[in-house]
Write a protein that binds this DNA or RNA. Structure first.
Lengths: 344, 344
DNA sequence: TTTTTTTATGAAAACGTTTTCGTAAAAAAA
DNA sequence: TTTTTTTACGAAAACGTTTTCATAAAAAAA
């Protein structure tokens, strides 16, 4: 084995320099009450001077904790999720914890692989937002059995007994629809991300119930189930906008589908909002400067992340078993912009 | 200490069940040539059946490697960086490595803290893109001294002897400027992110040289140094657009400043491109559907991330010391859209 | 004063792996 | 046949911490 040239610095070396035992030095660095103030001061100073940093694997192994939580999300290139991460991070930092980010890229298989990777104590707790493909959640049950604290946010696994942080999907969809219906829309298309996710279903229910309230019958060929294939989605939207039974408005479950719709409208020279109005769930930073500005239902992403982290920490520290039923529902807000403006 | 109810499963238990020694089981699971094919098969099957997963801390501690790389970036809520991460991830996955994402939020202090956190072997290598505040890079020298492979991308530390992956900042800025100048702009404002980062300086040089080529003198009150305070930046832009010496075009070093400019123009009823043209470095997904569509200089973000990872792995595996001089420069592309359209 | 308690330290075990080294048994070479 | 090599496994050390436990010295109580 190659012995490297740079100076190795560990507890053993440090204690040698300090002429103290390893255990004393360790305790001093961990601010144990067993150690005198004078010794602590001396040890901490020397550790800093010699640039000592504890080996995380050794200490995690011995102490059986990692001071780390994982956040599993579909993608970071999405304002909702990156804001949620920032919320979680802000909370975790206060607890002196680190956050590991895992992307599933909306693939169930990746989600399963990540769960396996986290199976053996790599993190002290996990926050999850499901893949749009996730129809089976057995892989999370394994983690639960193992005793790893688990919290779901936004895209939650309804069958798993764990705290869930969501937004008022049904109500916000209903409110968004009422806004559209008030401006006179009769043929509203629904672009969904998944047919298994609860958020998709709840938004769908809000959509349907708003239609019913206005005595409008939902039409099958205005309902679009989208998936991971961006090009296929665009083709579907194109077909939707060119079919006989054209919609006069689009209700998009996620901003990705609103963006695709904008692009198709541009291509087909369909005018928003004159020809078709668009509303979308979205945390897009550029919503207000789009052509035209996009009417959004915006979720409190940062707060969701922060809240999820705070509940996760209660699980980690207290092992409150009955916390499982703790379901938090935060409110989304409708921001009306030009994409649903008056028909002229 | 609380002994938990769920079944503990480690090498010891597994070897007991298999009636083999711990070392044999370990070797079998690691596909060692010392173990017979029959035994390997038996061991692997049992491990799967009993849901055994090696404790990562124990194995990292013993083997002195983590099979993990870190990516330090200013923010994930930025298409350039999230694409770069995806590029790095795609390469790392092929090598059976994991990627840890660390955000500095553009704060030097956070960058320093993250370096300390990574100081003791937590990862096998690090990819970095600097904070806009980073004017001193001593914290990276510590990591280098420690022997941890280091690669910079996009926002590089020029003083540190390590591989750097960048884009043709000078040339692309020059080309972008030529485009603006060709459309007749005379008073072009430069919105910079930092006065220390090399990318900012190079883009600035390209900007200046293009002006000079067209015999235009750079004007001080058209140069805007922006920082982390979004509101302050907006105020500066507002002032710029209302001062006597108004610009007829804006050259933004990062998309965040282009977005701010759009918002201010909207507020002040300044028309793009009629009153002021805008061009920006950007990987914005919505660039083409903005009002008006934004002319961008777009960097090959995914490729940058992938390339950086590939060079990092060469450092990790081969310990090629002379790789330090390896500087890769990829090309950005100018995408002309309406925000720099003809003056009417 | 003596006894008890407290304080501050060190020795050694433990965390769960990987890896080195030793060694029977089997196979190959002599 | 005997000797050498190879194969397949096990015992034990090692990775760098934290934590338990034992124990001298100091302080407090008797």
């Amino acid at each position: 084995m190659l012995r490297l040239a740079y100076i190795i610095m560990n507890l053993k070396e440090l204690s040698k320099v300090l002429k103290l035992s390893i255990s004393t030095v360790s305790k001093a660095l961990n601010d144990s009450s067993e150690i005198s103030a004078a010794t602590k001061k001396k040890v901490v100073a020397k550790a800093k001077a010699l640039n000592y940093h504890a080996n995380p694997f050794a200490s995690n192994l011995r102490s059986q904790k990692s001071k780390t939580i994982a956040v599993i999300i579909p993608a970071i290139a999405n304002n909702f999720f990156s804001l949620a991460i920032n919320g979680a991070e802000s909370y975790a930092q206060g607890k002196d914890y680190h956050v590991l980010i895992y992307q599933t890229h909306e693939e169930l298989q990746k989600e399963i692989a990540i769960c396996k990777h986290l199976y053996n104590g790599r993190v002290d707790g996990i926050m999850v937002s499901l893949t749009r493909q996730t129809n089976d959640t057995a892989h999370f049950l394994d983690l639960k059995k193992k005793g790893i604290p688990l919290v779901f946010f936004d895209r939650v696994a309804e069958k798993i007994d764990a705290p869930k942080i969501t937004t008022d999907d049904y109500e916000s969809a209903f409110i968004g629809m009422q806004h559209l219906l008030k401006t006179g829309c009769k043929k509203i298309a629904f672009l969904s991300i998944s047919d298994t996710l609860s958020i998709s279903n709840k938004r769908h229910d809000g959509f349907i119930d708003a239609l019913k309230k206005h005595k409008i019958k939902p039409e099958k060929n205005l309902m679009l189930a989208c998936d991971n294939d961006e090009n296929a989605n665009k083709k579907k939207i194109k077909k939707l906008l060119t079919q006989k039974n054209k919609p006069d408005a689009i209700f998009a479950c996620v901003e990705e589908l609103a963006i695709a719709s904008y692009e198709i409208c541009e291509e087909l020279k369909i005018k928003i909002p004159q020809d078709v109005k668009i509303i979308s769930y979205s945390n897009l930073q550029t919503a207000s400067i789009l052509n035209p500005a996009l009417t959004t239902i915006t979720q409190p992403a940062y707060e969701i992340g922060r809240k999820a982290a705070s509940i996760l920490f209660r699980l980690i520290n207290k092992k409150e078993p009955n916390l499982s039923e703790e379901n938090t529902v935060l409110k989304s807000t409708l921001i009306v912009r030009k994409s649903t403006g008056e028909k002229k």
